[in-house]
Computed example of a mutant assay.
Amino acid sequence: MGIDCKAPQKVDVICQHSVDGTVIPLRIRLTDEDGQRQVFNIKEYMDISHKGSYTTADGVFVTDNNLIFECKILVINMIKKITLYYSPFNQSWTMTG
């Protein structure tokens, strides 16, 4: 099962919303190439939001309004780096990795 994706892929994200307004991504769920729903726990994350408007190395245009997290998940006993993007305008999460 692979989750390599160059173009942003829509994902479900379970988050913790703290009293101070911070958002912590905990888990993602996506559909793999076989059409199966897969769930991955986020092992580590770093919030890289609010750095202005720019296009990321993955080709995603972001603004100060987007939430952006660099995350590590465990896939078949290997750590995989992914980037999660939340767009408040579309109210949707996408992932590249």
Results as ranks from 00 to 15, higher is better:
Met1Ala: 15
Gly2Gln: 14
Gly2Trp: 11
Asp4Gln: 12
Lys6Glu: 10
Ala7Val: 09
Gln9Val: 11
Gln9Met: 13
Val11Glu: 00
Asp12His: 11
Asp12Ile: 02
Asp12Lys: 12
Cys15His: 03
His17Gln: 12
Ser18Arg: 08
Asp20Gln: 05
Asp20Thr: 05
Thr22Tyr: 12
Ile24Lys: 11
Ile24Trp: 08
Pro25Val: 02
Leu26Ala: 07
Ile28Met: 05
Arg29Gly: 09
Thr31Ala: 04
Thr31Met: 09
Glu33His: 12
Asp34Thr: 13
Gly35Gln: 04
Gln36Ile: 10
Arg37Phe: 02
Arg37Gln: 15
Gln38Val: 13
Val39His: 13
Ile42Asn: 00
Met46Glu: 15
Met46Cys: 11
Asp47Arg: 04
Ile48Tyr: 01
Ile48Lys: 10
His50Ala: 14
Tyr54Met: 04
Thr55Val: 10
Thr55Trp: 00
Thr56Glu: 02
Asp58Cys: 06
Gly59Thr: 00
Val60Cys: 00
Phe61Thr: 08
Phe61Met: 05
Phe61His: 14
Asp64Ile: 02
Asn65Ile: 06
Asn66Ala: 08
Asn66Gly: 03
Phe69Trp: 02
Cys71Pro: 04
Cys71Ile: 14
Cys71Lys: 05
Cys71Gly: 08
Ile73His: 03
Ile73Leu: 08
Val75Pro: 00
Ile76Ser: 13
Ile76Pro: 05
Asn77Met: 13
Asn77Leu: 13
Ile79Asn: 07
Ile79Trp: 12
Lys80Arg: 14
Thr83His: 09
Leu84Ala: 07
Tyr85Ile: 01
Tyr85Leu: 03
Tyr86Pro: 02
Tyr86Arg: 04
Asn90Ile: 13
Asn90Pro: 01
Asn90Ala: 14
Gln91Ser: 10
Gln91Gly: 09
Ser92Asn: 13
Ser92Leu: 11
Ser92Gly: 08
Ser92Cys: 12
Thr94Glu: 11
Thr96Met: 02
Thr96Pro: 00
